[in-house]
Design a protein around this nucleic acid. Structure first.
Lengths: 342, 342
DNA sequence: TACTGCATCGTGAACGTTCACGGAGTTGTT
DNA sequence: AACAACTCCGTGAACGTTCACGATGCAGTA
């Protein structure tokens, strides 16, 4: 009358089928735990005959070892959380892809949480992720500090938000990016330059302020406009902007997705790009090569961003780089990729 | 002289900092394990004073509970693996997003593996994922059977590959899709219809054979062509196709990403879409609204695909639906979304 | 025979947490 | 004074696996 061998009768429809344990396999095979372990993990010290027999019985019982028990005794394999706002914005999968690649190389796991659905915030994602992972990478904006406290001493790499006491930080030199774009536009003879910002405040705001500051330095009176960070929202905003009086002859846009929407709007308004209005996007996602005209953009090497983030986590995890120091705060730069739209 | 309270001196640079355990916190606070548990999990039966004191000490020691020990005793929270070929193809993040959303609603975790890098195959991803998850969802193609054996009795939902003995299967009615597209093209007066296939064989081949079969039924002589499943590859192939003699006046394309490449090629060749050549894509990703002309496509409700996959996993996990039965094999249908390109 | 070596297998302990229970102290009621 | 009820806290046991070590049997060797 063993504990596992029968169900209480007449309970639910069909129980989640209490998983077979190593002891069940051992009993069924008439051997000990350790022998089952040896068989399952292809260890030495077991005859080929019993190995196959045990493996057969294990398969028959549908046994698969508990990752918890295994992790508990062996010391975990690293698993890193990835918190991103919106998988449907092509920027984030492009970034996620590079994180997954870098993580896979180290045989780490990546647990993804997308907090874009409903009214969820970055903090919700971190709360879900924190108990499950050894480290966290994410676009957390102003929640970075609270996120770090949820993670305790475990590494947290916060992107695009230079403030906050995250252990690791990766941010972007928006002054540099803005200078590249505005310099180019001015030298192309553009005089009425507009910046289409995202209306999500927080970390994003740094793009707007950087562009404004550089414009100031260059003596440009910048036309500013904001919209939701999606293509349709950008489309509507730009349509409104260019059909008004004093329409811009150049458009610098918060990100490539919105820039694609802007292209649509300009086309809809009967304007020719880049003749009537130049457009420069930001971030350099592959989408930019598929629009027409193809998108000139401030490009980021996204694969290097993912690599950097994972590398930072590795450094923090091993103690090689200390949290909150200069070593743990990376600043990456955009470069201007010339295509057709400017 | 407790075991955890000091490091062996003069070892590595700075050890991975043997994580503090609940006993360390208990000792430091002068209380028992259970009291620490009560403090950390905000349980009843503890005074506010000690709770805060213990929490403070825990934070100070950088203590965070082991997810393994917790999972072992509490019975795991479900975590499901997601194996996809390529996060940089916009189809997959769109799908992944819906899986993550459906999983989050059930407070499940999603562990993502992208096997597109290097020469990895779906099986590599499954091997990495299998020991870490309770269920698996993925585009596995012909590896579905081996994947199921790696997963043992745990639920496996295989997409877009109707054969194979995966516990759950979601496939698409490509005959229906092909009929929708070809019917429409024929009724629009198109006479030289081409199908641009992916050159990755396997499961994908079913699209090609379905289109060919329906074309046969309709008495159409189909022009067939294949290219790598990326925009640039499609672009090159289409450029070659339309500049040859007997150029098609309609193009049905394996997926939307390739269709976007096809649009580029047609534009490059000086052809007007849809006047000179109609283009119909497949899968209905958001990208289709950003090309110009906007892409007419055989659209799939991607959110419902993710929901279906997660729902299937839930059914299999609870025993509500039996593996390998009709109940566990879903077939979804595309619908034709008319935009500008056809 | 006795001992050594090897191949095969089994047994206690440990990993870090929660659960179920039990004990001590305080307050209130009769 | 006695008992109950409640608050707060601690102790064994259990979760499922691997690790370190010991036990057994058999072949070969002195």
């Amino acid at each position: 009358m063993t504990r596992t061998s029968h169900q209480q009768p007449g309970k639910r429809h069909q129980q989640p089928a209490k998983r077979a344990t190593i002891l069940d396999v051992a009993a069924a095979a008439g051997v000990s735990r350790q022998t089952v372990t040896r068989a399952m993990n292809n260890m030495a010290g077991i005859s080929a005959a019993t190995r196959e027999r045990v493996q057969g019985i294990a398969a028959e019982l549908g046994y698969s070892p508990s990752r918890f028990a295994k992790g508990l005794v062996q010391g975990a394999r690293v698993s890193v959380g990835l918190a991103i706002p919106d998988l449907t914005n092509p920027y984030f999968p492009a970034f996620a892809s590079s994180v997954v690649e870098a993580a896979t190389q180290r045989s780490w796991n990546v647990v993804v949480d997308d907090y874009g659905h409903g009214t969820a915030t970055a903090l919700d994602a971190v709360e879900r992720l924190a108990p499950q992972v050894d480290a966290l990478i994410g676009y957390l904006g102003s929640h970075a500090a609270q996120a770090q406290s949820l993670m305790g001493r475990r590494p947290l790499v916060s992107l695009d938000y230079p403030a906050g006491q995250a252990a690791g930080r990766i941010s972007f030199d928006y002054h540099h990016a803005a200078r590249l774009a505005l310099d180019y536009l001015v030298h192309s003879g553009r005089t009425r330059i507009a910046f289409l910002d995202s209306d999500q405040g927080g970390p994003a705001a740094s793009r707007g302020t950087a562009v404004a500051a550089v414009a100031d330095q260059l003596g440009i009176t910048l036309i500013r406009r904001a919209a939701g960070p999606s293509a349709p929202a950008a489309r509507a905003a730009v349509l409104d902007l260019v059909t008004g009086q004093d329409a811009p002859d150049a458009l610098l846009v918060f990100n490539d997705l919105m820039a694609a929407g802007a292209l649509k709007a300009l086309q809809e308004a009967g304007l020719s790009v880049p003749r009537d209005c130049a457009v420069i996007g930001m971030d350099g996602i592959p989408l930019g090569e598929l629009t027409s005209p193809e998108l000139t953009t401030l490009s980021l090497d996204l694969r290097s961003v993912g690599r950097a983030a994972v590398g930072l986590v590795e450094g923090l995890l091993s103690g090689g780089v200390a949290a909150g120091t200069e070593q743990s705060a990376l600043v990456l730069r955009h470069e201007l990729v010339h295509r057709e739209s400017a």
